[in-house]
Design a protein around this nucleic acid. Sequence first.
DNA 1: CCGTTCTTTGTAATCGATTACATGGAATCG
DNA 2: CGATTCCATGTAATCGATTACAAAGAACGG
Lengths: 329, 329
Amino acid sequence: MATISDVAKQTGLSSATVSRVINNYPHVSEEKRRLVHEAMEELGYFPNTSARNLRNRKTNLVAVLIPRLTNPFFTSILDGIEKVAEEKGFQLLICQTQSSKKKEMDFLTLLKTKQVDGVIFTSIENDWSEIKPYTESGPIILCNEYHRNATVPIIRLDQAYGSYLGTRHLIERGYRKIAFCHGSKSGLSNDRRKGFVRAMSEAGLPLNQEWIFHNTYTMEDGKNVLREIMNLRDRPNAVFTGGDEVASGVLKEAKRYGLKVPEELAILGFDDQPIASLIEPELTTICQPGEEIGSRTMSVFIDCLNGEIDRKQQSVIELPISLVKRKTT
Amino acid sequence: MATISDVAKQTGLSSATVSRVINNYPHVSEEKRRLVHEAMEELGYFPNTSARNLRNRKTNLVAVLIPRLTNPFFTSILDGIEKVAEEKGFQLLICQTQSSKKKEMDFLTLLKTKQVDGVIFTSIENDWSEIKPYTESGPIILCNEYHRNATVPIIRLDQAYGSYLGTRHLIERGYRKIAFCHGSKSGLSNDRRKGFVRAMSEAGLPLNQEWIFHNTYTMEDGKNVLREIMNLRDRPNAVFTGGDEVASGVLKEAKRYGLKVPEELAILGFDDQPIASLIEPELTTICQPGEEIGSRTMSVFIDCLNGEIDRKQQSVIELPISLVKRKTT
DNA sequence: CCGTTCTTTGTAATCGATTACATGGAATCG
DNA sequence: CGATTCCATGTAATCGATTACAAAGAACGG
């Protein structure tokens, strides 16, 4: 492979001048500029990225932590991040955490080793105290996640409000016995629980612990939830899930049991993924604008790199969340 | 940030010895080894990846070209790739091509600039003659794609057989008027057409050009296809689509028009994505094992890097493809 | 015409690691 | 005990770029 000094030799110039041409610096005569371009072409020269990164102390690489690549909501976020990244000349490193605390921490060392310029979390498993030390090494941004004491920019949706909205909608439709499905115990999931609890208590409805389900993520989990419900003596007549995938599992299995949706069981999703309007009856759900939250996040990230936003101080951008009424409620 | 020579200074040793400790070389006394570890801990030292990459002439980075992140079939491939990559200590660079020839070529320069050790194509837009020169710079692998004269390893499914299987199934069920939906004019799409044509001609059925649809990718495209069908004087009674998303669009719109599926219109998908068993009636489709094709690809990639497979010669691994009979045919 | 400024180019240090080669001392062997 | 081998460590070159500083010549102003 040709190096910059091969080009220098070929043209009879110094590598400094060649570098100036590569980086479009002024104060290089047109003639030499042309000469260098010709030589680069002829030798098939391309600058070595590792050498540049070493010298420039940056990589134009961002690590994106994502729990599962096969979750459409997260890929829509990723899509939003990617589009802005591509536009601004950044590359994305995929870090699938599988919701594992250990993997999350492992990926953070990419910052320490300067393999990436910064990290975007689209979900977070560890306590903030674990993460905080890494903020010294480069920008860390929370996307669709919220830690009360996180000292970084946060781009989020008001999850509590979203689930408040959803729960109130169920209550307005006359459902009183409402089940609720959790994901992990993260801040996000907590916020949703709060909104749920608030709407319930505002309506004077009691919380039935038998109707609270934990660790539900996939369609399969949704099916299991419904089976568990069927085994209860006192069954809920509405289910508020933590995601459209879970909701579609609940729906699928409900049909198998011959339950009428929404008459006998109302189902409320979260995300508004494409499947929401594909399944039948179409799923009422909470719309989370995945792509937009992603693109906003990447913009903020870039502003942090340029020092236009203080990366070590909490700042919150909140995007609107809304209820999409369809046929399952 | 602490560097290796800071560690050297702190311990009174040379950077060579420190490097030996970092890389677990033999011939370092236990005492010095401990000393170095202590100093690294104390200084919060992490080796700089760019410097290592420069010196070692490799990055442990792989570029994965993918048309759309929001297509579940491709993310299942990505998932398979990622799992093996993670296990073997590789990182993935996301390259969303949006099926653009230009972007595809742009991403290939990552190889030239040595930003990545190699490239995996999960779809390919340019002619092989455009790509070929880049094989000099590092391993290139085709995943789920096939170019007759590609001089690289290929991990693929027998697309022609898949669509042959699907078409024959439709014919066996008594459908004679079969529409066919294409994606791009890539090799993959071509193969599917071949299988379709073969099954049709074996059954002595004529091809109606009005029933061939091009450039169909999304659910929205599927809806459009059905609308176009409704406008035809002579309508097909079965549609073979190039993907489950397109199929679900066709189905959705067919229901809106009050068509009975499968009695009045049979629909056959391709991929076997999660939605296939979610929509109703459940979608008959061709199962493509996305995750497996991805993980096999990454394994082959690593074998290429280690020289255990000749990366500049065509080799083909073909995984089984099968028909999943459900309710739309 | 001389001093000043601007343009163009080169020299050499630098980024932070790895490693070929050298060296001195300890261990081993006949 | 002398020769040989092995172990532990250091010196300095190297990977391939960027850039501070120097320097020579051109342009310019009074």
